[in-house]
Each structure stands twice: as C-alpha cells, then as structure tokens.
Design a protein around this nucleic acid. Structure first.
Lengths: 130, 130
DNA sequence: GTTAGGGTTGTTATAATATAACATTATGTA
DNA sequence: TACATAATGTTATATTATAACAACCCTAAC
C-alpha cells in the first residue's frame, strides 16, 4: 500500500511537473517533458496519472483531456470537483466553494440514484479575456 | 443557415441513431452503424456530432467520450447540462432539475469570471446496481 | 534469510478517439 | 442565373489511451 503522501519516483516526477505548471497538461506533453528523466513510454505516464488521480493529488479536466494538480483541501480524493475554464485563453481554475460543494454533494437524483462523486466544469471568459 | 429542427440527411441519420439508443453512443460505434447508409469516414461523423451538439440536439458525455440525445427542454442549446452516470451498468440519465440548473447558472466565480455554460456529471450506482 | 505478494517500472505493439486538408455537391437567396 | 453558405465525400494523419507481458523492489511473514 502506498504510504500517505509518499510518492514513488515516477509519481514524484510527474506530480512535480503538473504541480508547477500554470496550465493543465496533457499526457503526451507530460511524456515529452519527462523523457529526459527516463520515462519513455505512454503507459508509464498513464499509469502514474491514474494513480495520482486516484490519490486525489491531481484531477482530470475531462473536456480537455488534461491534468491539473489539486489546489483544494475540500475535494477529498476527487469526490467533489469543480473547475472554471476560460474558452479563450484556456486558463483553468479549481473552484473551492464549500457551499457549492455541499449543495452538490447533497443533491439527490429523482430516480433514486445515490451519488458518490461529481465533476463540474464551468465555461466562459476570464476577467482578462472578457 | 440551418432551419430550426430541419436536419440534413446525415444529421438526421445520426440523430435518429443516437435518439433511439438507450445508452450513450461513441463516435466509432455510430460510424459502424451508419456505414450501410453511406456515411463511411470519421470526419463525416464528427462533423455531424459537432453540429448536433451546437444545435443542442445531443450532448457529449465528456467522461465517456460518448453522445446522448437531449431529453430536456431546459438546457437551452446545451448551456446547462447535468447527467447522472452509473459506474457499474454505465446507464446515463440527463438530469432535469430547474432548481439545480438555476443554482448553477447563477453561480459566480470569486475571480470574476462570467460563465456562459456548464456541464455537470454525477457518478454513483443506479437503483438497480446499488 | 528466504520467499511470497503487492506495487511499481520498463517495453513493444496496437487500439480508440479525433482532426487537417482539400475537392465536390447541394441549398437558399439576391 | 449566380453567388454565398452549408453540407458532404475522401485520404491521410494526429492525438489519446490501453493491452499484454516481463522485470524489479519492497516488506512482512515464515
């Protein structure tokens, strides 16, 4: 079992890269950037990405097939994620809004489905691009 | 300009297929199913899908790269979409909840971003699978 | 210390998803 | 008619993601 916050070599390399990136990174962008560090093939990247998502260290922006580091202590292992995405400059911000998070976590589907997790993506123009 | 609700041949073929499907359809599944009707290549499918999304006739389930017909009069050209997704049987339902839709449409980001659109995906187990 | 198990890594090949670029045909409208 | 716009057809290719298998490295139990 993975120790808390104790990342393996490849996990650390890829997490660092994503963490210091101001923008979401795509799997192959990551691959190109870590090849000099010995991570040479797609499966190595995708495996680490899956693991980091599972740990809640990063999130996948589904509409962009790209990954960002988690900046939020409220999303508890990626069970409640929300992002704002600028359609022009493509800046992505993780939204930390406890009210929003609670509202959605308590939302119950009419058809009796019990939700374990949600992902919300807002699109628009950021302050700079508006 | 496309007349309201007046679909072209390929659009009609692909919309019909998606509309009558109980589950989200992927682009290549669609392609295989319409090849007998003369739609032979991926770009033909993707173009129609883009157009139908733009018209609000279908929605893309981002986490599944699949498409469902819009069952909802409230999402006004796909500006406010929400889905429930069963992680076991993969059933997807479009959520029509005016309160939820209003709540999210009125949500304002702290950083001053003005949202034009959102997409929300809930995950869990449906009644049957729970 | 050895050995068994789980997690991680390395590697090759290939599957699945999506778009570029360009030629052609239809449709609506001045 | 003639022009503009949308839709279609086609080939090739780019991008995103996984299958499958071998090897390695812990560490906990015997």
């Amino acid at each position: 079992m993975q120790k808390e916050n104790n990342l393996s070599k490849n996990q650390q390399i890829i997490f660092n890269l994503i963490h210091k990136s101001p923008e979401p990174l795509k799997a192959y962008t990551i691959l190109f950037n870590v090849q000099k560090k010995g991570i040479k093939a797609p499966p190595q990247v995708y495996r680490v990405l899956d693991k980091l998502v599972e740990m809640g260290k990063i999130h996948k922006i589904e509409s962009k097939n790209a990954f960002v580091a988690c900046r939020n202590s409220d999303c508890e292992i990626s069970k409640a994620t929300a992002f704002s995405i600028c359609e022009k400059c493509e800046v992505v911000d993780e939204i930390s809004d406890i009210k929003l998070s609670k509202y959605l976590s308590n939302f119950n589907h009419k058809k009796g489905m019990k939700f374990k997790r949600f992902n919300l993506e807002f699109f628009g123009l950021c302050k700079k691009c508006a």
